[in-house]
Structure formats: C-alpha cells, structure tokens
C-alpha cells in the first residue's frame, strides 16, 4: 500500500490514488484534493455533498455512496451534482471525501 503526503499529512492511498483509511481524512486534505481535481474553492453545496458521503460511508464499508444515493440522500438534483463536480462526479466526490470508489452501479 502506497502512502502520499496531502496537506502536510501522510495518508495511505491505493494504486488508483483513493485514500484507504477514512479516519486519516480531514478538511484540509479535502481542499487540497479538490484543487488537484480542478475545484479551486469548495462551496457550501459541495461541502453538503462531501459531508453526506462521509456520513453515509460508515454503512458502506468506507466506500463512497453512489450518485443516486447522493441525490436521494441530500436533495441535490442530478443536474446540480454534475455542475458541482464537473466531469465525473462519482470518482471526484469519492476522492475528495477520502473514500473508496462507490460499489453500486446506479
């Protein structure tokens, strides 16, 4: 298992670059990964999604919820979700929230 330093903290990552221990995550890490993903600043709506994913992952074995679980769970519409995290919200959200890729297909 590889490690890398994000926002001054050493964390474990898998070979696709997803963090493997949700407990190592913090908000500074989220901000830094978001910047890598092209999101210069995280807005309140984006935090709402990230916070939901963090909370939901407890029941999902540390994996990020699927996009549909996010939209039904947060009330954020599909359109909004795709504009909050452009170009591939599924992976992007998981990465920023320090979680594994979602396991479901929907």
């Amino acid at each position: 298992m590889a490690t890398r330093t994000i926002a001054g903290k050493e964390v474990q990552v898998n070979d696709e670059g997803f963090m493997t221990d949700p407990a190592e995550w913090n908000k500074e890490i989220a901000v830094e990964i978001a910047a890598e993903e092209g999101l210069a600043e995280l807005t309140e709506s984006q935090w709402k999604v990230i916070d939901f994913c963090r909370a939901a992952s407890a029941d999902l074995n540390g994996k990020s919820p699927t996009l549909r679980q996010i939209t039904t769970g947060t009330g954020v519409t599909t359109k909004e979700l795709f504009s909050l995290f452009p170009k591939g919200p599924a992976k992007k959200v998981a990465r920023i929230a320090g979680l594994g890729k979602p396991e479901g297909c929907v």
């Binding site: 996009l67 795709f82 170009k87 591939g88 919200p89 599924a90 992976k91 992007k92 297909c105 929907v106």
Partner: peptide, 12 residues
Amino acid sequence: LIMGWAALGNGI
C-alpha cells in the same frame, strides 16, 4: 442506461 450512467459518473 446502466453503462451510460457509469460513464457520465466517470467523466466520459
């Protein structure tokens, strides 16, 4: 629908 949705979610 399933594969298309997965593609969109991954930025394709």
